[in-house]
């Protein structure tokens, strides 16, 4: 129960704790990094290097007035922000961090993650509708439309990986990459998946559901206090989840590159998994700092006219090669 094996209490507590702490820390990290990208300093007042900024933010969010607009649908309004952190955390149960480190190893792990990520969009949709505010509704609509479009080829893009590894289990996929990371045979799949992941977690440049330039703050316009905080935290957990999924699916998970393993395989695994994850987190932040938001119609046409055919093509070719090799 207190050893490192999949599903042990130790694992559960550690993973939950680390993920939540990291999500909070990410807020600070993102703002700091954005600062550097913009030749600024970023938050540096609270604690050393401003590291406690997130604590201050949380205190602020918790002590703020918890306001439910009188015109809103009360129950839905309260439930909506809870969905996204819950489903994102549930998805983390599938992530294999190292040999023996993980919460559950399901044979349909990948499907579960996809399903949970799909559920996350309800948070934005319901929040938008329950607010009874035209901007929130527009935000919710955008979220729904964006999810439906990008989830399609997100699913298709990872089928190549599934074909190659012959498994839906994430742990199985990592183990199948023992001899070579899938980023090489599945490069197109990786690109498509990364774009979809950005869109899936509402990250820039695909944060159209919030689109503060045109619809104030989108689906969370009416939210304040900790309800807003839940959306916020959920988004960062989502980003962390996507940053975990990319190494798991395409970069060999806990496998060290170039045989740079050290010590115990758990320590080495956690280290490399963590390092890869943080790399992608940083990349996500760089994308936010550098790229401009597309128009909604551009977003849609990219999804359906470029990404979907590309991922189908990738699936077709991968399947064909596997069939040919298998025969």
């Amino acid at each position: 129960m207190f050893s490192f094996q999949v599903g042990s209490l130790l694992n559960i507590v550690l993973i939950l704790g680390v993920v939540l702490t990291l999500a909070a820390l990410l807020i600070w990290m993102e703002r700091r990094l954005l600062g550097f990208f913009n030749d600024r300093v970023g938050p540096n007042r609270v604690g050393p290097f401003g590291i406690l900024q997130s604590v201050a933010d949380v205190v602020k969010l918790i002590t703020k007035e918890d306001w439910v607009p009188p015109f809103a649908d009360k129950l839905t309004f309260i439930v909506a922000p809870m969905i996204i952190p819950i489903v994102m955390l549930l998805s983390f149960a599938m992530i294999p961090f190292a040999p023996g480190v993980g919460i559950i190893d399901m044979n349909i792990g990948l499907l579960f993650v996809m399903a949970m990520a799909g559920l996350a969009s309800y948070s934005a949709m319901l929040g938008g509708i329950a607010s009874n505010n035209k901007f929130a509704l527009l935000g919710g609509l955008r979220a729904a439309g964006q999810m439906i479009s990008y989830e399609v080829f997100m699913g298709v893009s990872i089928l190549g990986v599934v074909i190659l590894s012959d498994s839906f289990s994430l742990r199985g996929i990592v183990e199948a990459q023992q001899d070579g990371w899938y980023v090489i045979p599945q490069f197109i799949g990786f690109i498509v998946f990364m774009v979809a992941a950005l869109a899936e977690s509402h990250r820039w440049p695909f944060d159209l559901p919030e689109g503060e330039a045109e619809i104030i703050s989108g689906f969370n316009t009416e939210y304040s206090g900790m309800k807003f905080g839940l959306f916020f935290v959920g988004e960062y957990i989502g980003m962390l989840l996507m940053a975990c999924l990319i190494p798991v699916l395409f970069f060999g998970g806990w496998h060290a590159p170039f045989g740079l393993e050290f010590g115990n395989e758990i320590i080495s695994g956690v280290f490399w998994m963590g390092a890869k994850t943080m790399l992608f987190v940083c990349f996500f932040i760089l994308v936010r700092a550098a790229l401009a938001r597309p128009r909604y119609d551009q977003l849609m046409s990219y999804g359906w006219l470029v990404m979907l055919p590309l991922s189908l093509l990738n699936l077709l070719i991968t399947g064909a090669i596997v069939l040919i090799q298998g025969s």
């Binding site: 550097f36 990208f37 913009n38 030749d39 600024r40 300093v41 760089l286 700092a289 550098a290 790229l291």
Partner: peptide, 21 residues
Amino acid sequence: SQIVSLWLVFLHLFHKSDTVE
């Protein structure tokens, strides 16, 4: 051009900050 943007912004990591504290 997106990739170039990413690269150029990335390079700003190594610039001096303009902020007056």
